[in-house]
Amino acid sequence: MSDKLDLTEAEWRERLTPEQFQVLREGGTERAFTGAYDKLKDEGEYYCAGCGSLVFRSDEKYDSGSGWPSFYAPADDGAVETEQDTSHGMTRTEVMCAKCDGHLGHVFPDGPKPTGLRYCINSAALEFEAAGDPPVGS
């Protein structure tokens, strides 16, 4: 994705709630089973709460039992980026929004077919648009 959204810390703080800022800009994680979208089964699309880019769809969402919304694939190949995360004394793969580099969560190799991946994503990093609703941000 070419057009990166690059804001100052003050601009991000103005744009996001304190919880969204902590997750998206500081790499935080909400507590398991507390996020708004963990158990949501509605059809629709999930957008980055930082920039409004489409990152996941309900078609690829499943209940992993982990306490966070889980998807076996992103909305498309260019929706997210990943990089190695060695924080907290472990090695994981961080998932970030491709447009704004916001921390969304982590991806693990223990998901269902067809990908075998589990994108474990923070609800605070997402905004949900139910099928048939007006687009996010309008």
Rank of each mutant, 00 (worst) to 15 (best):
G67R: 04
F108L: 04
R118I: 00
D3M: 14
R92P: 08
A73Q: 12
T93S: 01
S64A: 13
M1R: 09
T91K: 13
P69Q: 00
G102C: 03
K99W: 04
E14I: 06
T115R: 13
D63S: 13
D133M: 10
R25K: 12
L126T: 02
E45A: 14
E129K: 15
L117E: 12
G27F: 02
E127N: 11
F21G: 07
S53C: 09
C51D: 05
K113E: 14
E60F: 11
A49F: 01
Y62A: 03
P69E: 01
G78A: 15
A79N: 09
G78P: 02
S58N: 08
G116L: 13
D38R: 00
C120M: 08
D110C: 06
G78V: 07
P109H: 05
E81I: 00
G44K: 11
S2C: 12
L40F: 08
E129N: 14
D6V: 15
D110A: 07
W68E: 06
E60W: 07
P134T: 01
G102F: 06
L40R: 10
G35P: 00
T82E: 00
S123F: 06
L24W: 05
Q84C: 05
V80Q: 02
C97S: 06
D133C: 04
E45S: 15
L104C: 02
S64H: 05
P18W: 13
P114L: 12
G67L: 03
K61R: 08
C51K: 02
K4V: 04
G132P: 13
T115V: 07
E11P: 09
G52Q: 12
D133N: 13
A10D: 13
Y47K: 02
H88D: 12
E83Y: 03
G67Y: 02
S70L: 02
T86R: 14
E83F: 01
G28P: 00
E19S: 09
Y62R: 11
H88W: 06
S87R: 07
P18D: 05
Y62P: 08
G52S: 04
